[in-house]
């Protein structure tokens, strides 16, 4: 059976996964609300619906970041070794990348939560 968790790969792209999710979430949230508030009459649904949609998108984004963090944690050897991982070896390179990705994932998780907080409190468009 094929595993849901991707296999371990040595690529710099995994480092950027969480920040990219954060950036996309930021742009989609701000863009969607701006368009909704400018075109409310055309869209024909309530702002609460928009909040629910973006809330769902936030959960998906957080899930992707948690998955990226888990993969980074695995790459880091589940915390078995301490940084700085600065030897010129393939293993240290992988451990360093895993640790850096884990930290970036933590930052991205907090940032996505901050971006989503206004969804709880802002209940209408104001023109």
């Amino acid at each position: 059976m094929k595993s849901f968790i991707p296999r371990e790969v040595e690529s710099l792209w995994t480092l950027f996964t969480a920040p990219i999710v954060w950036a996309v979430h930021f742009v989609v949230c701000y863009g969607a609300v701006a368009v909704y508030c400018a075109k409310t009459a055309m869209l024909g649904f309530e702002f609460s619906t928009m909040r629910i949609i973006l809330g769902g998108f936030t959960v998906v984004a957080l899930g992707m970041i948690v998955l990226a963090a888990y993969l980074a944690w695995r790459q880091w050897g589940f915390g078995s070794g301490d940084p700085p991982h600065d030897e010129a070896t393939r293993q240290d390179r992988a451990l360093f990348q895993g640790f850096a990705t884990l930290l970036l994932s933590g930052l991205s998780f907090v940032a996505v939560v901050y971006v989503a907080i206004p969804l709880i409190f802002i209940a209408e468009c104001q023109r």
Binding site: V110, V113, Y114, I117, P118, I120, F121, I122, A123, E124, Q126
Partner: peptide, 22 residues
């Protein structure tokens, strides 16, 4: 710091409708 910023942001957001009544 993350928790304090989260609390401050939430507090500011919660105050906002009353600070700027529509």
């Amino acid at each position: 710091p993350s928790a304090i910023l989260c609390a401050l942001l939430s507090y500011g957001m919660w105050l906002m409708p009353a600070i700027r009544p529509w």
